[in-house]
Every structure is written in structure tokens, then in C-alpha cells.
Amino acid sequence: MNGAHDMGGMHGLGPIDPEENEPVFHAEWERRAFAITLAMGAHGAWNLDMSRLAREKSDPAVYLGTSYYEHWLHGLEQLLIEHGFVTAEEIESREQEILGGAK
């Protein structure tokens, strides 16, 4: 698909700005999102190419405005719902519980 991920040759996306002595992960949620993605991939419900497609389907404006592990998280969430591992309602209600709302 002609999505925002297919960016070879685009202009105007800014300087590369490499970070010196960059850590492997920049936040705890990145660690967990990375590991959950690999662990759920091991179930074999989808293949790696399907994971890539799920990330590519993001809204182009969102894709360009979010980080790599946010792309992973978005793709994972789509696949989990699509394959019936969780529902959007379950995610929403678990978030409310974590926030201290109604259980």
C-alpha cells in the first residue's frame, strides 16, 4: 500500500540527529511493548509480514508523528483484536481499572 511507511525519497523530514551513547530502550513501556510483540508472535497466529502490514495500515499522519515502538504497539493491538486474543472493550476497561476507575 502507498502508505507513509514507504518513505524512500521523501524530503523535509528533518535532520537525522543521532543520539550519542544511545540506550537500547528509552522507557519501560518500550521494553514491555517490544517483548510482548515477540512473545505474541511466537503463537504463530500471524506471520511477520502480517505484523509489518498491520503497522503500515496506520493513519499516515499518525505514523509520521509517532515513534517506532508506538508503531509496534499499534500493529500489535490491531492483530490481537483481529485474531480474538483481546477485545477493544477489554482493553478499555482494563485501562479504567489501572487508572483507578470502576472495576
Partner: peptide, 19 residues
Amino acid sequence: HDSSLSPTELRVKALESLL
């Protein structure tokens, strides 16, 4: 119970908890 989480942090926590 933690309301200082960003939406992304919250989403990851919710998914890990459910899974």
C-alpha cells in the same frame, strides 16, 4: 492505581495485564 501514565504507557500496561 496510577493516573500519571501517558496514554501509551497505559495501553501497554493494559495489554500486558490482559495477556
